Simulated assay, not measured.
Amino acid sequence: MLTLAAAHSLTHFYIAWIIIGICQPIAITLSIPVLLSNWFNQKLGTVMGISLGLSAFGGTIFNPIIADIITKFGWRGGFIAEGLLIGLILMPLAASIRPNPDEKHPAYGTTTKSESNSLLNGITLKEALHQPVFYALAFAMLALQFVSGSVQHISGHITNLGISPVLAASVVSGVMIGAAVGKISIGYFLDKLSPILVLLVYSLFGILGWSGQIFLTNSTLLTISAFILGLGQGVCLVALPYLIQKQFGEKDYSNILSVINMLGAFAMSLSVYLVGLFFDQTHSYNLGWTINVIAYILSFIAIFITLRKKA
Rank of each mutant, 00 (worst) to 15 (best):
236 C>W: 06
291 I>F: 09
287 L>G: 01
127 E>V: 11
310 K>T: 08
297 I>R: 00
104 K>G: 04
157 H>K: 04
158 I>T: 05
59 G>S: 12
84 L>G: 04
189 F>E: 00
22 I>G: 12
210 W>G: 00
45 G>A: 05
295 A>C: 13
111 T>H: 10
259 V>C: 07
241 P>W: 06
79 F>I: 06
284 S>N: 04
241 P>H: 09
80 I>F: 06
260 I>R: 09
56 A>H: 12
178 G>L: 06
202 Y>N: 01
284 S>Y: 01
285 Y>N: 03
134 F>I: 10
281 Q>M: 15
168 A>T: 06
289 W>I: 02
293 V>T: 12
170 S>D: 12
25 P>D: 05
198 V>D: 00
280 D>A: 07
210 W>T: 02
48 M>N: 13
242 Y>M: 01
18 I>T: 13
61 I>E: 03
243 L>P: 00
88 L>Y: 05
153 H>M: 00
294 I>P: 02
55 S>Q: 09
301 I>N: 10
233 Q>K: 03
13 F>I: 15
255 N>D: 05
40 F>D: 05
44 L>N: 03
14 Y>P: 06
108 Y>K: 14
256 I>H: 09
10 L>F: 12
66 I>L: 07
152 Q>E: 05
45 G>E: 04
113 K>S: 11
6 A>Y: 10
282 T>G: 00
298 L>F: 02
229 L>C: 09
67 A>K: 00
178 G>Y: 02
66 I>C: 05
192 K>R: 15
285 Y>F: 15
56 A>G: 15
240 L>C: 03
120 L>D: 09
75 W>Y: 14
161 L>C: 08
205 F>T: 10
266 F>K: 00
148 S>I: 15
254 S>E: 11
33 P>T: 04
157 H>I: 05
12 H>G: 01
203 S>F: 08
97 I>S: 02
128 A>V: 06
183 K>N: 13
99 P>Q: 11
293 V>P: 13
106 P>E: 13
259 V>R: 08
74 G>F: 01
130 H>L: 13
98 R>P: 01
149 G>W: 07
35 L>F: 10
277 L>T: 13
